[in-house]
Amino acid sequence: MSRQAAIGWTRVAVIVGSILLIEALCRLKIINPLTLIPPSEMAASLWELIVTGKVTDDIAQTFSTVAIAFVLSVVTGFILGAVIHALPRVRRAVDPLLASYYSIPFFVFYPLLIALFGLNTIPLIVIGFVFATAAMVISTLNGLDRVPRVLSKTTRVLRMSSSSSVLFVTLPAAAPYLFTGLKLALAYSFIGVIAGEFILSGGGLGYSIAYAYNNFDNQTMYALMMFVLVIATVMNGALHVFEQRMLRRRARA
């Protein structure tokens, strides 16, 4: 445990140390203030933006778009994964597709989506959805593959109905993999939506960052950048902690 603690504290020290280093380099003007502003100023400017309510609409827009893309991709990905798992013939056909799915640079489709659906949130939802769904499909397949055969045999011995065996045995057994899918789907829909807003859109956090960049407004730009990075890190960190706890409980059982 003490090694674990040492690792944890060293990690915190490394992160805090690098932030302080950047702060010092900026304050000492070794880094040009036109290139990067000190983190403390970013935080102050971010606070200002939040309190004055200037970015509330953008935040609301980005998060609602991410939420829609995330929910759609998780539901669709899970259903597709379950269906593909049940049909081995189909699975053999789509396996190569899934293996090369993430080699496709999906953002090249984004301008086409704008031409198809117009400059609104639909292309953003679609790009986030397309980016996230395959991760959920792959995780669902992984999870269902790894349900121990003895468990499904036991459900038959106990003459459980198929619905209760899925609900009480298959899903809990596959849960850690499904959770990984959830985690990836969230990260990917966030990346997809922000990147889309960044390239071309009419609102949202990514758009505001690009807009501030084009207007040489470093204060706003770095404040929003910090906001996005902190939110993404906190979100992923929370899911990671939850996942570890789930795995530990499982290991004990």
Binding site: I7, T10, R11, V14, I15, L34, T35, L36, A187, F190, I191, I194, A195, F198, G206, I209, A210, A212, Y213, M221, L224, M225, V228, L229, A232, T233, N236, G237, H240
Partner: peptide, 24 residues
């Protein structure tokens, strides 16, 4: 020490960092 930091960096939307890179 480093691995979780890199995993976290892997999942953040790095596209937001592009203006910083352009400024550098």
């Amino acid at each position: 020490v480093a691995e979780p930091i890199f995993v976290a960096l892997y999942t953040i939307p790095k596209v937001t960092l592009y203006p910083l890179i352009l400024l550098i």
